[in-house]
């Protein structure tokens, strides 16, 4: 195991949104701070630095991770997808448009983390019930919308995708 004395920075190399990235981090540097202030990927937002609100959620080696509760050095060699990577995924355009149509976002600060969770969820659970969607979303705090638009948008996209696949 690598040992880093306090205050010493080390180079962390990882793949973010399909591209090789590297930057410096201390052992205590949060992944959220590393993504934002070292790699300049400001789409990932920090709402509580406590792992509760879910705003900073990213996909880390295929699993959802709170980047505020993950250390940057843990991401060495990892594959990460942030909202900027999701934005490049044309397949998610229906989800984004449904979010917009249904008023699933207002200030949009929580939205990047929610898109990470929602897209990850739909990939595993293409035909969810409303209760399952609400359960998934309960890992995120949004103070603007009351969540209703998100639930409607996710269910609508799931329905359309499932119907499309069955035709």
């Amino acid at each position: 195991m690598m040992r880093l004395p306090p205050g010493q920075r080390t180079r962390v190399t990882c793949t973010v949104n399909g591209q090789a990235h590297s930057g410096f981090a201390e052992s205590r540097t949060l992944l959220s701070d590393f993504l934002r202030h070292e790699l300049h990927l400001y789409g990932t937002h920090v709402g509580c630095e406590h792992g509760v609100c879910g705003a900073c959620t990213v996909v880390l080696d295929g699993r959802l991770a709170r980047s505020c509760a993950t250390l940057a050095v843990q991401a060495e060699g990892a594959e990460i997808t942030t909202v900027e990577g999701l934005a490049a995924d044309e397949g998610l355009e229906p989800l984004r448009q449904a979010f917009s149509r249904h008023g699933a976002l207002q200030c949009g600060f929580c939205t990047p983390g929610i898109l990470a969770s929602a897209s990850h969820f739909l990939a595993a659970r293409p035909d969810p019930t409303e209760a399952e969607v609400r359960d998934m979303l309960s890992g995120h705090l949004c103070r603007c919308t009351g969540y209703e638009g998100m639930v409607r948008a996710i269910l609508e996209v799931a329905r359309e995708t499932t119907e499309g696949a069955n035709q």
């Binding site: 400001y42 789409g43 990932t44 937002h45 942030t82 934005a87 979010f99 976002l105 949009g108 898109l115």
Partner: peptide, 19 residues
């Protein structure tokens, strides 16, 4: 009318104060 604000917010392109 779908909100003009949304595209930037949904793609990580909206800039907030900490950015």
């Amino acid at each position: 009318v779908p909100r003009l604000e949304d595209a930037a917010l949904l793609t990580g392109n909206a800039r907030f104060i900490d950015d």
